[in-house]
Computed example of a mutant assay.
Amino acid sequence: MLRNLGVALLLSQLALAAPTEERGSIVGLDLFASIRGRYVGVATESYNINNSTTWGKAYKNLALGSDFSIWTPENSLKWEVTEPQPGVFDFSLGDALFKLAKQNGKRMRGHTLAWHSQLPPWVTANNYTAAELKNILQRHVLTEVGHFKGQVTHWDVVNEVFEEDGTFRNSIWYKTFGPDYIEWSFRWARQADPSAKLYINDYNFESISPKTTAAYNLVKSLKAKGVPIDGVGVQAHLIVGQVPKDFEAALARFASLGVDVALTELDIRLDLPVTSKNLAQQAKDYKAAVDACLGVKRCVGITVWQVTDALSWVPSTFPGQGAPLLYDEKLKPKPAYDAFQNALLLDQWI
């Protein structure tokens, strides 16, 4: 403990002494997180990292640097990419990112297997009997997880299965099988890779609500049946000024079931244009999110959903909002970066 404390104090001095624009590359967030027993990860893709422009090279330095120790493929493991035609699998994009990860000492999260969105049209065309569709889902889970066996730390096995009122989302999977597909998917994933930690993943899991109560009850029932579920992924797509006050309590409630929790897709969007005021609030909100994870022993880590505002999904989905990440469009660290770092520093809580 004393040794770790000394390391933390030294790193904090180095970080605070470095010019702001260099902090991300000199002393990264993940170094501080590891002292706290957590990781910091990021969503990215091989084509982001291999961008040969000057901007792209700066992005690569950040993605490969010490801010992040674990990567999540933003899109390249989703069904529409990996199985565009029935039984025809294409893992080339995922393989490219996994290769970069291995070369650079990064771990990988797998995202995602059974989801209602980003499915190829052939899956949702309603041309299959229930038995045929079950075989299709089984084949997909076994093949994809099997392809990356031994290379994935966590898999988001089922994604976004609940509505806000706590009812099951009326996806093709639920309409056809009811909730049974959830159990099947976890069992198939464990069969294909016994070493990977298996997660349920969803948004608006950051507060105690009908949705999180339903998820709590589902996880409890799955565990009671011996289903191999290891964690709850809390996406944490948040809005500036609206971070829930019971964030930590929501995480702790899931963890009380004997599973890990993780913030899996953290970003905190703000109303545009960017101002010093909303950046300051965003920084406070990032610190609150990190503090919530640090407050729960079984919160194992935090993944931000892309490196830079320039590549965020937010502006195209929420017009008038954006700038949700730690680095701005020019790849400069924002006040949120410093707040994230300060939340992790060991000397903030001793």
Rank of each mutant, 00 (worst) to 15 (best):
Y59Q: 09
N61A: 10
W55K: 04
S52G: 12
Y39K: 02
T53I: 08
S34D: 13
I35G: 05
T54H: 01
D30A: 07
S34F: 07
L31P: 07
N61W: 00
E45L: 07
N50S: 15
I35V: 14
G41C: 05
N61Y: 00
D30R: 05
L31Q: 14
D30Y: 01
G41W: 03
R38P: 11
R38T: 13
T54I: 07
K60Y: 04
S52P: 10
L29A: 04
L31W: 13
Y39H: 09
G28S: 01
R36L: 08
L31A: 13
W55M: 01
S25P: 00
R38S: 12
D30H: 11
L31E: 10
N48H: 15
R36E: 09
I26R: 06
S52K: 14
K57C: 00
I49A: 06
N51E: 15
Y39N: 02
W55R: 05
N50L: 14
F32D: 10
I26T: 11
N50H: 13
I49T: 04
T54S: 10
K57E: 08
T44P: 09
S25F: 01
K57A: 01
Y47S: 14
T53D: 10
N48C: 12
S25W: 04
K60I: 02
G28Y: 00
T44V: 12
K57I: 00
F32W: 14
S34K: 11
R36Q: 13
V27E: 04
G41I: 08
R38Y: 09
D30S: 13
N61Q: 11
S46A: 15
T54D: 09
V40W: 11
I35T: 06
K60Q: 15
L29E: 03
Y59M: 04
G28M: 00
V27L: 08
L31F: 08
K57N: 07
G41S: 06
A33Q: 03
A33D: 01
A58I: 11
G37V: 08
Y47V: 14
K60S: 13
S52M: 12
D30T: 08
S25C: 05
S46P: 10
S52W: 08
S34G: 13
R38W: 05
N51I: 06
I49H: 01
N61G: 09
A43W: 05
L31T: 12
S34Q: 15
V40T: 14
N51M: 05
S52N: 15
A33L: 03
N51K: 08
Y59A: 10
V40C: 12
R38C: 13
I35A: 04
S52L: 12
K60H: 03
L29P: 07
G56Q: 11
K60W: 03
S25I: 11
Y39D: 02
V27I: 15
